[in-house]
Design a protein around this nucleic acid. Structure first.
Lengths: 236, 236
DNA sequence: CACGAAACTTGCGTACACGCAAGTTTGCGT
DNA sequence: ACGCAAACTTGCGTGTACGCAAGTTTCGTG
């Protein structure tokens, strides 16, 4: 092994480079030509890989664009929880870590956010991206609860992490909500009819980000505080 | 309007009939020829509709098969919560309703369950089906909390419902888990490589349903009890 | 330093999802 | 009873997802 490979393998770095290239190419093209006028072939070409390779990294066209905005928040949230002082309540640690990581976003740029909030499919993927924190967060919470590392169950930690993820999801949902929607409460297949047309096609940026994200996050996480506290007290 | 149309419109009934026909056709064919040897065209043909219509009812091939097993559990869970006696704790109402509805399943048949647990893609859709209870459950919980009906926020109810859904999802996940998996902790695109091969292709029914579903549900829901209780007390 | 295995890329082929613009059915108002 | 509008179905066309079986690169090891 020559000194040229400084850290953690060349392979891994190339992979990350490709991933980032795809992310940024996707976002750039989407901003330039509009999200619907970008085919995966374009993204792949702009990133210098084959279209097939694109799908080795992202399983849908929207994921790449959204990934450019969310970057690797999942891992960072979990790390932030672990980094909170030990005397913090579990509830406080989680809430502060989440708010912190979603606030000091490395500014995706307001244009990128507009892009995502405008198109329904992008909104959905963006909102669902919150569930990605579930697994890392499970580890972080289990750690704080003092769970034995070999314990494969970790019921409580898993449920709490999933609940936190769900709360974050709801906060994001409210944040990017296009003002007041008509109805659309049921499952995606409730109406069944082909009038599955768009929501606001050329309405042109009427979406307003309702409320500040930190506030929404705190409000959404507040109801979970009792559960987090209880888990903490019960465990020790 | 002649007396022939007895209740709730002919249109609606036809739609439900088509939906059910598709569900059952999908399950039947999947059981006969194996889940991979069934194309949507086959399902559509067996149900007597065009392939295009299939996608007006289900947005993926797996959804129809899973829907045949889960039927309309979402709505029934919400109804069950509303039906619990008024003196019940919110926590108790929710837990009992969930357990009840997932226990007295109109027996999908063990073969159907095996089918779902065997194939990874089916497992995923099945597990995700738990999130469908979120919206009905939000209404039911908001109702019990005495939220004003015009209140469009209902932060607490939404978060609690989402958390319950997440807990149910985790219980189902554990229930259909194929024994002990190696790792697979990260997001679906973490490994990135095309070695995206199957998990247990011809292993032939080695999956064992670990533990009884009611037990798993109660264990998963238990950590949320404090949050449910707190919401209830705070609201009145 | 060379070699073999494992990881990754890529082209190909197939199946799928879905917008669109007809054509058909249902249901409601008059 | 008639007719129109909304709901639903369907064929078509395009773009997308992904298994497979090469070809290529990386990496550990003797």
């Amino acid at each position: 092994m020559p000194v040229t490979t400084r850290r953690a393998g060349l392979r891994e770095r190339k992979k990350q480079a490709t991933r980032e290239a795809l992310r940024e190419a996707a976002l750039k093209l989407a901003l330039e030509h509009g999200p619907d006028n970008v085919r995966v072939d374009d993204i792949a070409e702009a990133a210098g890989v084959s279209p097939r390779t694109y799908n080795n990294y992202f399983s849908s066209r929207e994921q790449a664009i959204v990934a450019a905005v969310t970057a690797e928040r999942e891992a960072r949230v979990a790390a932030a929880v672990a980094a909170r002082p030990a005397h913090d309540t579990l509830a406080k640690a989680v809430i502060e870590a989440v708010v912190e990581q979603y606030t000091d976003q490395d500014d995706p740029g307001p244009d990128a956010l507009l892009l995502i909030t405008t198109r329904t499919s992008l909104r959905e993927v963006f909102i669902d991206s919150a569930t990605a924190i579930e697994h890392p967060l499970t580890d972080a919470i289990a750690d704080r609860l003092g769970d034995p590392p070999d314990n494969t169950d970790r019921h409580t930690a898993r449920v709490l992490a999933a609940s936190v993820a769900a709360a974050v999801r709801i906060a994001l949902e409210q944040w990017v909500q296009p003002a007041t929607i008509p109805s659309t409460t049921g499952a995606p297949s409730t109406t069944a009819g082909p009038p599955t047309t768009a929501d606001s096609p050329t309405t042109g940026r009427l979406v307003v980000l309702s409320g500040s994200l930190p506030d929404l996050l705190r409000k959404a996480l507040a109801p979970l505080t009792p559960a987090l506290d209880a888990a903490e007290h019960h465990q020790r």
